[in-house]
Simulated assay, not measured.
Amino acid sequence: MESHKLLTSSEMGSLWTTYMVNSMFKCFYTYGLQLVAEDEDIPPLVQEAYDQSVQNMDTIRTIFEGENFPVPVGFTEHDVNSNAKPLYDDTFFLDYLNKNGKLATPQYASFHATATRKDVRDFFAKCLTDNYQMYDKTTELMLTKGLLIRPPTISIPRHVDFVDRQTYKGSFLIFNDKRPLNAIEISHIYTNLETNLLGFMVCGGFGQTAESQKVRDFMLKGKDIAKQHIKTFSDKLLESDIQSPMTWDAATLDSTEPPFSDKLMMFLINSLIQQSVGRYGVAAGASLRNDLPAMYTKLTAEIASYANDGMDIMIDNQWMEEPPRADDRDKIIKQKN
């Protein structure tokens, strides 16, 4: 008989993170489902996302209980006020589902790639499938309704070009700041700009409704950082005569009644920051113009400092659950003595 395979550290971390995020999504979509929707096409998608979050939590809970692994507290009904006034209009939830499809796909792919147990691999394969299907559905719906802002277009090349060695060594054409952006660089700049537009809107709404003054100040700072990063990315596009996308700020309403706990709002923003750090790193590595990696390094430092401020708030309020960690061998040895 095949011996029972224990969870690896990678699987523990991936499952723990997924449980925490999905417990947050369950609350987030619970609120979305209680709103009176003007667009009848959006609630079924929010319901589908809610159901997926519940199913994901159930699967992880079963795996953890089979290993006598403590199930995280995560977020509960105490972290959401489903009767709160609307903070965003219908288009926000559709846009958020679409953006989350982009953000979560590489994370689930990474979790799947680092899993070895079949039940864990099967679980993350399902998460991947559910995620990209949601992205496809929301993309089609936004296209149909004229809500999707497509990435910029550029002229199709007339022929294949290769870098000329003498040109490269002599004038650094490829790495010259003045050269027009290439398609790969445009793609990363546009994607990161789009993510900051979402962060700008989320921080704005959360800042209106947070109960703690420290959390309100934190959200206001996040909104300002997102605005600065939006301008930085937009300016880079405009240097190559490429128009930046419109904002979604109109989707934020004027309610000050909190639909979510400060704990949940801090966790969601922290998750967006983590994803932004990863995206900035990928973009810096894929950019050939020497001004772009420097730009991403500077922006990464700004949001890393911002993330540290957020972590201090969460720790001070005992909102931050600790992920599974390795045994402290030195401490065990000292206790033995």
Rank of each mutant, 00 (worst) to 15 (best):
L7E: 04
T8F: 00
G13L: 05
N22C: 06
M24E: 10
L45T: 04
Q47S: 03
Q47P: 00
N56E: 04
R61E: 15
E65V: 00
N68C: 02
P70I: 01
T76C: 03
N83P: 02
K85V: 08
P86S: 03
L87D: 11
D89P: 03
T105N: 06
P106V: 01
Q107H: 08
H112W: 15
C127G: 04
L148Q: 13
T153F: 14
H159N: 12
D161E: 12
F162R: 14
R165G: 05
R165F: 13
Q166A: 05
T167H: 13
G170V: 05
F172D: 07
I184H: 06
I189Y: 07
G199P: 01
G199T: 06
G204D: 11
F206E: 04
E211W: 06
L220I: 09
L220W: 08
S234N: 05
T252D: 02
D254S: 15
T256G: 04
P258S: 02
P258M: 08
D262S: 06
S271T: 12
G285N: 09
G285R: 05
L288V: 10
D291G: 02
L292C: 05
M295W: 08
A301K: 13
Y306G: 08
Y306R: 04
N308T: 09
D309R: 04
M314S: 09
D316V: 05
N317I: 06
R325L: 10
